[in-house]
């Protein structure tokens, strides 16, 4: 074994070190960078109003056409905590970890972990 290690050239060892460093640091760099891709996007009246990673807990208040709407992110899930629309269907939707919550009167759409897809390129169906 010792002989084997002695037989390697300096370039061999350097290359090994570089490859190990690149791959190990790559694992951590990617892990750091990736959670941000699973995130929450809130659209109000068709325009993106807010976005945040799903991994960070927070409570935010946004202004919609029917009053303030409270969006809560906790434990990688999102819900609409409070809304001032008549039926409060969006609040009854509860916690969502992957999918969409819609508040029709307020024209608010909350996308959770839809990986960059918005409804512009994610149509369910098109009818003539």
């Amino acid at each position: 074994m010792k002989k084997l290690i002695k037989k390697t050239t300096l370039a061999d060892r350097l290359l090994l070190l570089i490859l190990l460093a690149v791959s190990v640091s790559g694992i951590f760099v990617v892990r750091q960078a990736m959670p941000a891709s699973a995130d929450v996007v809130v659209e109000i009246d068709g325009r993106p109003a807010f976005s945040a990673p799903l991994s960070e807990d927070r409570l935010i208040t946004l202004q919609s056409s029917c009053g303030p709407i409270e969006v809560e992110i906790r434990g990688s899930r999102v819900r609409i905590k409070d809304a001032h629309c008549p039926n409060k269907l969006c609040m009854k939707e509860g916690w969502v970890s992957k999918g969409v919550i819609v508040c029709l009167p307020g024209k608010v759409v909350v996308f959770a972990d839809t990986r960059g897809k918005t409804r512009k390129n994610n149509l369910d169906a098109v009818t003539g």
Binding site: T8, T9, A11, D12, L15, L16, L19
Partner: peptide, 14 residues
Amino acid sequence: NLFGPVGLSLVGAL
């Protein structure tokens, strides 16, 4: 003569 078998094998693996 820069790389020995180990270095060449690493280049191949990469």
